[in-house]
Design a protein around this nucleic acid. Structure first.
Length: 477
RNA sequence: CGAGGUGUAGCGCAGUUGGCUAGCGCGCUUGCUUUGGGAGCAAGAUGUCGGGGGUUCGAGUCCCUUCACCUCGACCA
């Protein structure tokens, strides 16, 4: 067995068994450990660091648009959860209950929040009185619990981390605007920070959030052609406001209900990061989300001057997140290790480079190696990191583009779903029966409804009746 | 929740028709030598064989039961 073969042996090949490949990566790249609790994962430092990067980026975007962070309780009294009918029906099957505190049985059961709409609503009902109190643009970073039947690291866990934004507005137009503003921010976050292109759209009634009037989504395509619902943004209308009696006095001294939104992105996004960008050597992280952007590997570091040169190199790269790997592993071991962890750029520095006042730069995305002079190294590294981001985004965009098909009739549709991993664009009449038939017979679901001006003369791919929507269909995580 | 699979050292595994002090590889510790694609030598440490119950002179091995995890489906960010 050659060393080369041994290296890839650690991770199951992506094309041989995508699921196993995914599981190998999350464990071997030290993102998570399995926990003593079913379906819950331990986010290890490296995995949590990715989440912290995402938090930092999105939190900055939220603050820049006037949102404020708050912290709501972990528990929700049963009676509160039950105030909005659709909402409770949607979540009841998957909530965890607290029935006892200490050795005392509680007079009212508490649910561990599966999402915090009801808490925010109760709070808004209390604190909003006048149009001067609006809008309320609240967000919280927290974890929530949903009792899932089957779980996978990041993609579906019993407890997961997310942000949930909850806003209240004076009128419908402003609330709708907020819903779409946030949707666009998710698109920007995915594209500009995670190098993942997404498709924006609206969810069908069947797929939308329990209690929402409209659910918008960004859908991403994984390397195996399956869809990942990457983030959602909901317009609630005044449904929750009526259930929770959230009223305010407007400028004309009339009592009005607020219009609300909610929106979230979760640690599932990290699963997307893995499944969009990873390869057979492990994770590949786009530079803007990578906890470590540049790893410096000193070669022959016992020799005089090498470690000093490595530290000097780090100094000159102070604008970036840089780590020196000065452990006493072999250099080859370090190369493979940091590749597995997806560090975008590796700089090797050894006696030979020091003599030439240079270092060797290796791109994680392409494997390309080049000698970089130490003078102006910061600039050169910066250019490389930017190049890596664009090239990863192009690669992901190419995958997304080439894995989309169109179907005008049922036979073409089912053949495509069965034969070609990816998304199928097809028209739909809007009936739940047709949507259900697609799911029953193909395993694919409607991912989202997209804007189109070409409905005239189109027919539903299932029943042949006149179409009302253009839908992107696909199998999903 | 249905079907299938797996639980033996930190990880990956072996352990024969039930038999003696439960092994191997990697990793870990210490020392020396090494360092441009997963280094070498030497010396060490590490086990409730997932848990419980049973059969037996004797159980990692057989039986019952239970728990956990993985994969695939049904339900969901």
């Amino acid at each position: 067995m050659t060393k080369k073969e041994k290296r890839v042996e650690q991770i199951t090949s992506r094309d041989v068994d995508f699921s196993q490949w995914y599981t190998d990566i999350v464990v071997k790249a030290e993102l998570i450990s399995y926990s003593p609790v079913r379906g819950c994962m331990i986010l290890r430092p490296y995995g949590f660091a990715i989440w912290e990067r995402l938090q930092a980026e999105f939190d900055r975007m939220l603050k820049a648009t006037g949102h404020e962070n708050v912290a709501m309780p972990l528990f929700i009294p049963e009676s509160l959860l039950q105030k909005e009918k659709d909402h409770v029906e949607g979540f009841a099957p998957e909530v965890a209950w607290v029935t006892q505190g200490g050795d005392e049985v509680l007079s009212e059961r508490l649910v561990i929040r599966p999402t915090s709409e009801t808490l925010f609503c109760a709070h808004y009902a209390e604190t909003i009185e006048s149009w001067r109190d609006l809008p309320k643009l609240y967000n919280q970073w927290c974890s929530v619990v949903r009792w899932e039947k089957s779980t996978r690291p990041f993609l579906r866990t019993t407890e997961f981390f997310w942000q949930e934004g909850h806003t209240a507005h004076a009128d419908e137009a402003e609330a709708r605007e907020e819903t779409l503003r946030i949707l666009n921010m998710y698109e920007d976050l995915y594209r500009d920070v995670m190098a993942i292109p997404v498709i924006k759209g609206r969810k069908s009634d069947k797929e939308k959030f329990a209690g929402a009037r409209e659910t918008y989504t960004v859908e991403a395509m994984m390397h195996d052609g399956k869809a990942l619902q990457a983030a959602t943004s909901h317009y609630f209308g005044d449904g929750f406001a009526k259930a929770f009696d959230i009223t305010f006095t407007d400028r004309n001294n009339e009592l009005k209900y607020v219009h609300q939104t909610s929106w979230g992105i979760s640690t599932r996004s990290i699963g997307g990061l893995i499944m969009v960008h990873g390869d057979d050597d492990g994770l590949r992280l786009p530079p803007r989300i990578a906890p470590v952007q540049i790893v410096i590997v000193p070669v022959a570091m016992h020799k005089p001057g090498v470690l000093d040169a490595a530290h000097a190199l780090k100094e000159s790269l102070s604008d970036y997140r840089v780590k020196i790997d000065d452990t006493d592993k072999m250099p080859g071991w370090k190369f493979a290790e940091h590749e597995m962890k997806g560090v975008p750029l590796r700089l090797e520095i050894g006696p030979r480079d020091i003599e030439n006042n240079a270092c060797l730069a290796v791109r994680r995305d392409t494997g390309e190696k080049q000698v970089l002079p130490l003078d102006n190294i910061a600039e050169a590294a910066g250019r490389l990191l930017e190049a890596i981001h664009s090239s990863m985004l192009s690669e992901a965009t190419e995958l997304l583009n080439k894995s989309q098909y169109e179907a005008a009739d049922w036979v073409t549709f089912t053949d495509l779903i069965a034969g070609k991993p990816g998304f199928v664009h097809a028209y739909w009449c809007g009936s739940e029966d047709c949507e259900a038939k697609v799911k029953d017979e193909t395993q694919a679901t409607s991912r989202c409804l997209v804007e189109t001006d070409k409905l005239d003369g189109r027919t539903c791919v299932v029943c042949g009746e006149p179409a009302n929507h253009l839908v992107i269909w696909g199998k999903a995580y």
